[in-house]
Amino acid sequence: MKLFGSGHGACPGCGLPIAVKNVLEGVGPCFVANSTGCLEIISSQYGKSAWGVPYIHSVFENAAAVAAGIEVALKALRRTDEGPIVVFAGDGATADIGIGPLSGMFDRGHNVLYVCLDNEAYQNTGNQQSGLTPSGCYTTTTPAGKIMAGKQGQKKDMVAFALAHKLPYVATASVAFPRDIKRKAKRAIEFKGPKYIQIHSPCVTGWGLNGKQAIPVARLAVETGLYPLVEYENGELVRVKKVKERKPVEEYLKQQKRFRHLFKHPKGHEVVEELQKIADGNALKFGLDI
């Protein structure tokens, strides 16, 4: 039986199903807990479930706690051999409203793979900023007006957050590299304890893309150094995806409606420079350049 099926309601070209099907192929049959958000809405309507594995939708903030509950329940029932426990949660659910329960789950050391589906805003409610929205990005709560040029402040570093909890496995991935997602998910469940994978996933409506642009744009995020693909085992950086001839961040930004004000706004230039600095910083920190 397929682990995730056709007939779900994602927008044409959405990255979320690409992330989900490749994670599931990497880990095999498993138990899934999913926070409120696009994935839940598109896949779990009553009588129209797209899941071929046991699945529970929690509420917005508590998927990590629900997964922790499943883990101890399976232990108590001596059913731990039936498969790993995987959380799928949006960036809003992960970095904002659910960050407390997530920290608790990490801290208690539950044997759970937590996957953050990072489409860089609260997309299911129509594109509001989250802690993982990048600097300068337009969202309905960070509009580009006379004074501000989109989101103020930087994208929250959830990889550092996960590492601070001393997790055995922490990685980032992108739907532009699905084979890498599959490999990382498979690798993650070889470790006991909590694991964190954050997957960059374009939202066609929120980012202002057509379906054909989604994957090339996601690829550019990696090729500019804005979304470095890294992998930590037991706190050590073990692998990074190297980038040949790193591209300027403009190439990535220009294709998306959510950033287009940066090329007209009086402060736009400053923000683009700041984003370029972030990309350069990533390249230096992770040794991205070949």
């Binding site: 099926g5 056709s6 007939g7 309601g9 896949s43 479930s49 899941w51």
Partner: peptide, 12 residues
């Protein structure tokens, strides 16, 4: 509880 893969009846 929903049954598995009932989404297949939704022809998109």
């Amino acid at each position: 509880v929903s049954k598995p893969l009932e989404s297949l009846k939704v022809k998109t």
